[in-house]
Design a protein around this nucleic acid. Structure first.
Lengths: 126, 126
DNA sequence: GTATCATTCAACCATATGGTTGAACATATC
DNA sequence: GATATGTTCAACCATATGGTTGAATGATAC
């Protein structure tokens, strides 16, 4: 099903930097040259180049040359795969979340859950 | 809607380490003491303790004392929030993915997309 | 109180990360 | 060919990360 190797370490590491998340977001809207990518930030070109290399290694973007410019685009396949994984994670967590929620709703708090009282029980409306 | 501050930097940084992802997965199944968490890995206790602190700071787990043991549980609220965010991300990406797919289906490849020919077009069945 | 068990803290080390600067490389233009 | 433009590379710096070891803390057991 998943054709490409999804390196979760590098994908999540890529996403752990807000500049890179912002770059991803902008590149998702429209393909950009490296200069265009760099424009909004007060970083040097080399720094942007490094960020792009991180994103490229994580297969979140594709870089290719067009004349003297290097064009950056979101890498559709890798993004799709990452999204699939995240959905899977989300499912696991939601299930667990529901289970914990059940516990909290049906048990008299602290007694069996072993939670400190300062921890709020999750709410359905959350 | 989101009550707690979701620090995406620390959440994604937490998820970028496979040991921590594994700990999260195991703790999601069942609450564990620090020793129990540590057991499967060949790391020292201090290393595990550090990993747990990273996860705690990212609000992905809750730690509390029970006698002389420290019990680790998945932090439901934070996990729910993280999952919500990931779903959102996934939605953005899926939308973008669909848009790229449209482009690739309806245009004669390389000419207007500017993609190198070695890049496979995404497939509906992916 | 003393010993023991569970865990953390402190100090240290190696490597990774995010940034800088300035030189180098491609491509386009004159 | 010379020059300008766009981007990367190399070297460097500061800080963060992931690990170690050994001492310190906190709670239980004797």
């Amino acid at each position: 099903m998943v054709e490409h190797i999804l390196n979760l370490d590098s994908v999540f590491a890529s996403l752990s930097d807000s500049t890179r998340r912002d770059i991803l977001r902008r590149v998702a809207e429209k393909q950009l040259s490296v200069s265009e990518v760099a424009k909004p930030y007060k970083l040097g070109f080399a720094a942007i180049s490094k960020h792009l290399k991180v994103l490229e290694k994580a297969r979140l973007i594709i870089k290719h040359r067009q004349g003297k410019e290097h064009i950056i685009q979101l890498s559709p396949a890798a993004v799709k795969n990452a999204a699939d994984y995240l959905i899977h994670y989300q499912t696991i967590w939601d299930r667990r979340f529901d289970a914990l929620e059940m516990l909290l709703i049906h048990l008299p708090a602290e007694e069996k859950t072993g939670w400190p009282k300062t921890i709020k029980a999750p709410r359905k409306t959350l």
